[in-house]
Design a binder for these strands. Structure first.
Lengths: 142, 142
DNA sequence: GGTAGTTGTAACAGAAGCTGTTGCAGTGAG
DNA sequence: CTCACTGCAACAGCTTCTGTTACAACTACC
């Protein structure tokens, strides 16, 4: 299965919605988005469901239904997208509690949490620098 | 299974080796390390195998065998440990190629690789700032 | 109203990864 | 030679991810 592609899928979806908005198309259905991502519509609906719960997209149900961005693409950062679809931290601590008899086992978890926190914050800071509008611009250049 | 604890296990092992070195114990066996991490010796040997391939630890085989650090703990960074035990990038691209008929499908992968590269580099920069000696110091404080 | 198109969600299969475990061959100091 | 340890393969159990099917709920439009 390799790495998880949730952020990629969600960003692809939002970028596609941003392009549609710019072209005057009001809403897109999950089928239409799925055709661009080249996957199953249910995958897209799952991702869009996460994005909707985070307030990044809006849905219209019933006939003629579909999805649209809830905000301008300049105001959606990849950090928000990441938080909407991916809750796992990049580094995990021990699965089973280390041996507390050992000085290393006793103190290492808070020590590692510190370091992991710094690394994660650095990554998040970088994701916050890029918006969906930036991704769209870069995408159309390529 | 949740998140990946490889970096945690490997750092725990190295920190323990660093403490042993400071206490005058030359080598530790995988059984002894496993007792501190509170897991199976084979897990430790797998991790130590990765670290040995990366040149961070040395092994003595045969009777009276065991492991020791290949360098001073001040000169082993968590970035090196991370690279030794974890090769998966934090973000993955699409599993199946997106639809190249679509402008977004065509250009999004290089655009995302850029962003992911920046985020990953930021994280790596942070991991490179911390050494095993730092972790040991922080560990003994707690 | 009825109909048709679309979302929301549950259920399931298949693949893959990780940890944990057992077993055994290889190795080298004493 | 022996013994203690490593190296490694094989396997089980669990979890997660993608992908798929199926179906109820919803609503614009005729």
């Amino acid at each position: 299965m390799a790495a998880n592609s949730r952020l990629t899928i969600a960003t692809h979806v939002l970028t596609w919605l941003a392009l549609a908005r710019r072209s005057g198309r009001e809403v897109l259905t999950s089928d239409q988005v799925a055709a661009s991502v080249n996957t199953n519509p249910v995958i897209i609906r799952r991702s869009l469901g996460d994005l909707r719960r985070a307030g990044l997209v809006e849905v219209r149900r019933g006939a003629g239904a579909g999805w649209s961005l809830a905000r301008a693409p300049e105001e959606i950062t990849l950090l928000e997208v990441h938080d909407a679809v991916d809750t796992e931290p990049p580094f995990g601590l021990h699965h089973t509690e280390p041996n507390l008899e050992c000085p290393v086992g006793r103190g290492i978890r808070p020590a590692l949490s510190e370091v992991y926190g710094r690394a994660e914050r650095a990554m998040r800071r970088e994701l916050a620098e890029t918006s969906i509008a930036d991704v769209l611009r870069e995408t159309l250049v390529n």
